[in-house]
Design a protein around this nucleic acid. Structure first.
Lengths: 237, 237
DNA sequence: GTCTATAGCCAGATAGAC
DNA sequence: GTCTATCTGGCTATAGAC
């Protein structure tokens, strides 16, 4: 790679970064459904056709934003995991949950892009799934750790049909996790994001909005739902 | 009301119904953010300005769709309550949850309008809250019934801060429900819709999508989270 | 890599005829 | 209550000059 090439490559990546930055801004203003290359170009002082050198279509730009956002929140989750290595599994679970909520609160429009209404007419390409799976894999890492340590205890039986489906999913993911635990973990994953969506999308407006206590309490209880032991200092119940 | 007036009023209501029907169709095609009076008019064989006799703006049409959808799913929930009067509280809880899921699966775009990403630039007027509260009130009716019968037993303690917030909310709603139970019920409400959103918005694609067993199992466990007794036939645990 | 120009669309909202 | 006409703006995408 010649120096000249390196410079050009760098300039190109900086332009791409600027486009995505402005596109994220547009996301907040108009929403993903109305994301327009023209508006982005206008704000950047460019003409719309110039952007086609960087993104061949609006949908490709959207895909880049989605992958970036999944990676950003996934990195937060993984960082929380790394920062709590060796701690009690329940503490790790809560740390991941809080990390996701913290990111979501700071980036509500990107959260909506990932977990809100799908953009009509847009089909997420296969390449988004790797980034999307980082959060569930982080949560499953905690559950698997508890299972491997022999301390995973589901608070109640899972229906046989759901456990069977969980078994298939765990096998496909290559996880050493019983089907019932896998099913409960998937439920807890969806339920966790239900709390976030309600908070961010306004369903809790006027009642439990923006309450750390409310969320932490729910997230901790979800940890118990998936079979994690009670945190240290709390007796069994 | 003269007969002539009655006829005109009826024609007006039929036109309004046709507009809303077509608008719901547009919702499915383009999404709420792009709902356009022009497209609705075009499909109805009208010119766009004609619609302004019925809805003064795009947002008013959106509000009507939102209220209608909240009422539709609220009616389903209340019908499930009415149909299970006298049955075990856990069965009633599950019946309401299943009813909501059934409606959501049949009307995914209206579900998205209510529980998905808020429409950018649209502010829901106060009048939507009455209809929006029908679902949580139906769920709370089950929990309150159990509490009144003296059979409500939370599976674990709620954090004091969350319980305090729950107490305030219960007081505001005029419900005879302890703060900790109110908090758990609100959590379960959000968690229930988290399962639905994940299912409808595609997060479960490839794993637990469209699984009755998975949802029923989760919904039943949520009933236990809010303190409902185990269904008849199952022993205590 | 950015520009102008263009084709072919779309929208919300209002004025005024009938 | 519906129409035509209009204003004012928006969009994706491409062709071809520089």
């Amino acid at each position: 790679m010649t120096p000249a090439r390196g410079v050009r490559e760098r300039a190109r990546h900086e332009t791409i970064a600027a486009i995505k930055r402005e596109a994220r801004h547009q996301l907040a203003l108009e929403g993903a459904a109305k994301l327009s290359l023209r508006a982005v170009a206008r704000e950047l002082g460019l003409v719309s056709s110039a952007l086609y050198r960087y993104f061949p279509s609006r949908d490709e730009l959207l895909t880049a934003l989605i992958v970036d956002a999944y990676d950003a929140v996934g990195e937060v989750a993984e960082a929380r995991l790394a920062a709590t290595e060796g701690e009690h599994v329940s503490a790790r679970w809560l740390a991941v949950a809080r990390g996701v909520r913290h990111w979501a609160a700071a980036h509500p429009h990107e959260y909506a892009l990932l977990y809100g209404t799908p953009v009509p007419g847009y089909r997420a390409p296969q390449e988004t799934t790797r980034a999307a799976s980082r959060i569930p894999l982080a949560l499953l890492a905690v559950v698997t750790e508890a299972h491997t340590a022999g301390v995973l205890r589901l608070p109640g039986p899972v229906s046989p049909a759901a456990a069977r489906e969980g078994e298939a999913v765990a096998a496909r993911l290559g996880l050493d996790l019983p089907g019932d635990a896998m099913a409960r973990a998937a439920q807890a994953w969806g339920q966790l994001f239900g709390l976030l969506s309600f908070e961010l999308f306004g369903q809790y407006t006027g009642s439990f909005e923006r309450s750390d206590a409310f969320f932490d309490d729910a997230a901790a209880e979800l940890g118990r739902l998936v079979g994690l032991p009670a945190p240290e200092g709390e007796g069994p119940r």
